[in-house]
């Protein structure tokens, strides 16, 4: 694909069970829609991230103050995410030249390198595919969306913030930690969970399991509410 031709949407290579990524917006638990996009690191396909986690996020526009604070925060976050096998992938409806100029400006004015690629979604293909444009907010700028995609290419979490409000990047790390803990231990995580806190043991689905649960040595308030350390 030539960079001049813009981004392209591809059929997902994943074959979901009862879910389709090619119709409608991304859904939790369904394959993330495939694409090939022009980025500040060259042409990238979503499949290039297979085997690792991806945080795909959009910002409204280059050279705007809230977005600049977010990029500084995401850049600071990148090393922590890499430790967790997570890559960042930014996006806005701007040209590659705009992205490059903004990244260089951030380096010049704030002394910070942006260590992740940014999709130049000039034709809005990826933004449309992922529902990043909110017509009630803007028809030309993507809202502050975050899609957490797991190593199998499944959408695991989505966060949407309005144009006016910068994201809390600590919450993104917490969310990744929670999802990875869920995958590793087959558990759920309670409100405001942080690594080191006790996790929720999945609720029993039969009377027999409920009886057994109370004798299993977990910290149980009742049969449906049990915690354990991991």
């Amino acid at each position: 694909m030539s960079p001049q031709t813009g981004n392209t949407v591809q059929e997902s290579p994943h074959t979901p069970s009862g879910a389709s990524s090619s119709s409608g917006l991304p859904r939790l638990g369904s394959p993330a829609p495939s694409f090939e996009a022009v980025t500040t690191f060259g042409n990238i396909r979503l499949e290039d991230f297979k085997g690792g986690w991806v945080v795909l996020f959009s910002h409204p526009a280059d050279f705007t103050p809230v977005c600049t604070t977010e990029f500084l925060a995401f850049a600071a976050l990148a090393p922590e995410l890499r430790k967790r096998n997570v890559e960042l992938l930014g996006l806005s409806i701007d040209s590659p030249s705009s992205h490059i100029a903004w990244v260089r400006n951030i380096k010049e004015k704030f002394g910070v390198d942006i260590p992740f690629p940014i999709i130049a979604d000039s034709n809005k293909e990826v933004a449309t595919l992922y529902g990043m444009l909110m017509p009630g907010e803007s028809k030309t700028e993507t809202s502050r969306c975050v899609f957490v995609i797991d190593p199998a290419g499944i959408v695991r979490a989505m966060i949407y913030y309005p144009l006016t409000t910068g994201r809390n990047t600590d919450e993104i790390v917490r969310l990744i930690d929670a999802l990875q803990t869920t995958d590793k231990h087959g558990v759920a995580t309670p409100a405001n969970w942080k690594p080191g806190d006790k996790v929720i043991v999945p609720t029993p689905s039969t009377m027999e399991e409920a009886e057994a649960r109370m004798k299993a040595g977990y910290e149980c308030t009742d049969w449906y509410f049990c915690k354990k350390a991991v």
């Binding site: 690191f41 060259g42 499949e47 290039d48 991230f49 690792g52």
Partner: peptide
């Protein structure tokens, strides 16, 4: 690609996209 990512210290997605090109 994953071995090359280790040899180059580049992220795997960069190795894959670079190899494709």
């Amino acid at each position: 690609p994953d071995a090359l990512a280790g040899r180059t210290s580049l992220p795997l997605f960069r190795v894959r996209s670079g190899l494709r090109e």
